[in-house]
Design a protein around this nucleic acid. Sequence first.
DNA 1: AATAATCGGTTGCATTTGCAACAAAAATAA
DNA 2: TTATTTTTGTTGCAAATGCAACCGATTATT
Lengths: 218, 218
Amino acid sequence: MKKYFKVLEKVPLFKGVEKELDAVLSCLLSSVKAYKKDSIIFLAGEPIHAIGIILSGSAKIIKEGIDGNVNILTELVPGDTFGEAFVCASMPKIFVTVQAQHNCEVLFINYKKMITPCAAACDFHTKLIENMMKIIAMKNIVLNQKIEIMSKRSIREKLLCYFEIQRETGNSNQFTIPFNRMELAEFICVDRSAMSRELSKMRDEGLIEFEKNFFKLL
Amino acid sequence: MKKYFKVLEKVPLFKGVEKELDAVLSCLLSSVKAYKKDSIIFLAGEPIHAIGIILSGSAKIIKEGIDGNVNILTELVPGDTFGEAFVCASMPKIFVTVQAQHNCEVLFINYKKMITPCAAACDFHTKLIENMMKIIAMKNIVLNQKIEIMSKRSIREKLLCYFEIQRETGNSNQFTIPFNRMELAEFICVDRSAMSRELSKMRDEGLIEFEKNFFKLL
DNA sequence: AATAATCGGTTGCATTTGCAACAAAAATAA
DNA sequence: TTATTTTTGTTGCAAATGCAACCGATTATT
């Protein structure tokens, strides 16, 4: 177990209990499982009762359409957590499939164990609960922001909405975004070239200035 | 307080502790405040530390753009909860504004109190935490579904994605949706008439059948 | 029953967008 | 350095979409 501490220390779920990780993990009945490349970790439609944390290797969350085409929703790397939403919502089954991309190892945390204070005076339960709540709530806020952006009808409005969020977040009219053009287009769900065209127009109209990932609102 | 039990009994946060509501509320240091029509309950940019529950009247969650135009995100009626995401995420400030639509009364639940087990043997804390987790996680799933729909490029794909979710949820190729045309269009963020046009086309092509809110996938 | 209001479908039209192909610029590799 | 790959911007074009206006059907109100 020790060899994973480097990874586990940085997992948001364990923030504040890094010192007691040994005790935490054994109290939570956590287990480690290894998966070969391409094998299934969670299968859509199956019930799940534990939260997964990638220890090594990588995995992907995929969604298979009725027509058979698969869609990669997220790529998971060491330290990433998955399945929380379904477990915490007590959903009878998970909607997505999690599949190993390379050989990988996964730590599973039993949810019931986590949120139930145990007989022993394990006072880190409160901290774990707080962390988990924070993780999910934060994701909630981020998802809402994304919906706010995507609910705009035109590319220009989507961009302005995204920029506005950046402005609010950084309290500044200028900022560096964490995407290149391609990624930004994917994030706001529009065509890259169409977005590029719109960005140029907005610059010509004196609304914004930009150079690579650096943007300035005028 | 008694007079609000009718409302509080049905609040998801209190599911499973309806019998002990009196004890719960006093342990949580909850307080009730009355607001006059149009007055501000939470102001965007301010810090918040409590979760709100509408007891009577109604309120709205609004977002003010930089250009001054306001956007109603949600309307809140008795029993509705608000502010959970920001409080549970420990955000330093709330991004949206909550304003009374009519005169209304709001119950505030202190978050710290809720997630911290108290000295007295209040074993309902665990239940409340579980409920809160479930509420936020569930919203998470719903938001993800909405994003999945909105990330589709065409109206047809958006509709099919929405229908597919309905199909999965109900395990049936036919279902009654909770929206009229106007609301459905708003939900998937497209123009109503354009959506109507697309629905007709899809029917003509033999993809679907529908009558009012009842849809059948073929 | 008569009237008004809401809802859903249709259509013409201008605009926006996605798509594809290409070119310039920048980054990376040889 | 030169060659190669990746990234970004540009443009023509066809298709999709939003918008507005309209009409008939359904529902609610008087």
